[in-house]
Structures are given as C-alpha cells and as structure tokens.
Amino acid sequence: MSDLLAALNALRERLTEVPQADERRLRELKTEILGRKAGALTHILAAVPSLEPKDRKAVGGVANALKRDFETAFAARERELKRASVAAGDLDLTMPGRAGWQGGLHLVTQVVDEICEIFRELGFTRAVGPEAESERNNFYALNFPHDHPALDAQDSFYVGDGVVLRTHTSPVQIRTLEAYPPPIRVVIPGQVYRRDPFDPSHSPVFEQIEGLVVDEGVTFVDLKAALTAFARRFFTSDTTVRFRPSYFPFTEPSAEMDVRCQICKGSGCPTCKQSGWMEILGSGMVHPAVLDNCGVDSERYTGYAFGMGPERIAMNRYGVSDIRLFWEDDVRFLSQFARPHR
C-alpha cells in the first residue's frame, strides 16, 4: 500500500511538467499518466478495488484527487497552447471562415410579408380565398356589368363552366363579406391570373394584395389615412403621396395612389416614365352594390378597398428591370436577396 502511495507522490511531482509541455509533449504526458492502457495513474486506479477495505479508501481518495488535478492541468495547458498559437501569428486570419448555405425567401414573398406586416400594425388581419373562382365572385358580385368593356382589362383563363382563375384578389372581398359581420379589416395576399403573355412588365400569373375595411362611419379620409401611413412606412417617412381619380366597378369613388418616384425623387427618370410618380395601388370606397350583393346594409355600413401588385413594387424598390426574373429561379438572383435586410 505504501508503494502505491509513494508512486502517487512521485506522480504528483510530474504535475510541474505540465505547464512547460509543448503540444507534442502534452500528448505524451496524457498517455503516460492517464492513458487507457498504459497510463501510470490508470494502473494505480485499477489496483484500488483489490486492496484491503481501509487502504482502498485512502489510496482511492488520493488517486482520484490526483486524477482530477492532472485533468485540470492538462485542460489549462491545452487552452494556453491554443491561445499561444493564435498569438504566435502562424495563422492566416484572412482565410475564409467556414460557411453553411444561406437560405432565403423569394423577393416577392418578402415584399408581400412586409406589406402585410405594415397593415398588421394598422390593425389588419389576413384572409385568403381559392385561385379557381366563380365568375360570380370574380366579376358580377363585384359589380362588373355583364358584357362591359371593364372586363377587357381582366382577360381571364377558364377552367370550367363559369369558373375562372381569379383575375384579382377582389373576389375574396365577396367571400369575406359573406362569411363575417362588420367590422371587417383585412388584407388578402394571393396569386392571380390574367391572359397576358410574358413581357418585361407582364406575366400571366402574378401576386396581388387586396385590402378591405367595412364598418359604420368609414370614410374616404380613413382610406387616405391608412394608405398614406402604409406608403410612409413601406418607403420613407417623408414620402409624398397623391390620390387621383380612377375607375374600378367595385369602388365609388375610386382613386389611384401614386408615390413620389423613389429613384429620381420627382424630377423624372426612365423608371417613372418621366412623370416623377410611381403608381402604387388602386383604391376606393366600397361600391354600395358590392355591399348589397353580399347582404351587408349599404346605408348603415361604408368601407374602403384597395389592391396593389407586389412584383411591381419590388421591381421599383430593388431596381429589378424584368418581371420574368421572378419566375426564372436563377439562384444567382434568388441569393442576392437571401440576406436579411430589414
């Protein structure tokens, strides 16, 4: 037993070697002392169970304490060496770091999400509806007259008798008004379809965001207020907006909202076709016929509605010149917008 204690004492002496050891020597020391097969201390610990019970406790206590001390010393020296090697300057710190792939949302999704978030701040929830829609919901309940030129701008794909691929998100106005009582305060993002061939600014399929507010006492001032607030939050807080007359069968009065061109600030440039303004959205007070068609009392309730095209807005804001880039899914395009940036 005293042999073992002596051996342990001798081993303890060797603790002083640890702080001087270089990387190689440290590896050797670890093997010599704590190595699983030939470690000196490992041997002693292995012998402990065969000792007399009273010795077992004494030797075991000392051996375990020594093991902890060695482990602590080894770990401390390892950390020291690691630091030293960095400080020693044998690393080229300009070498690139180890990366993972950067995922990202499609730019159009990002813009849709951002717009919906702003409207959430303004008290709107989101609603959805199907993409294959009845002519009734897509046109006639929205007060489109039958056989009227207003239908020309909405050239639609037919997928069944009286079933079209919706040409706008506005039919969800009808679905919402028929399913929920006022007050209604929703935005409706979604994909829409028009029979327009591809060109740099047209796509047969595109995204739209609709908005609908219906309650007692909702006025044109509320429309202007909400949409101006939206524009100033989406663009910059000093953005100038203007409202001018327009025509949609489902709103009366109708208004188009323009914002000062973000690129030329109004002096005229190719992006805004020299007008100094960018068309952002169409809007208006909900036509009483639409409310009546949905069983909402148009004398008691008034409301406003609006619709915008996130692709156009994204193109303006990010300087993307061709709408088809949104469909090509070239990762060199997609990854440009993957980095979080707002």
């Binding site: 303004l122 929830t125 609603a127 209604i184 305060r185 929703v186 001032v221 202007k224 207020a225």
Partner: peptide, 22 residues
C-alpha cells in the same frame, strides 16, 4: 382628393381571424 385630410383615426378591430393557411 388632395384637399381631404389623411389623419389616422381610431378604428374597431375586425372580426376576421388571421388566416391559418397563411
């Protein structure tokens, strides 16, 4: 339209829950 003010006024929250699908 430009002569109309554009001040935000209080509003009542809507009855439509945020769409689970989205």
């Amino acid at each position: 339209y430009d002569v109309l003010p554009d001040d935000l006024r209080p509003y009542r929250p809507g009855t439509v829950p945020d769409a689970p699908a989205l």
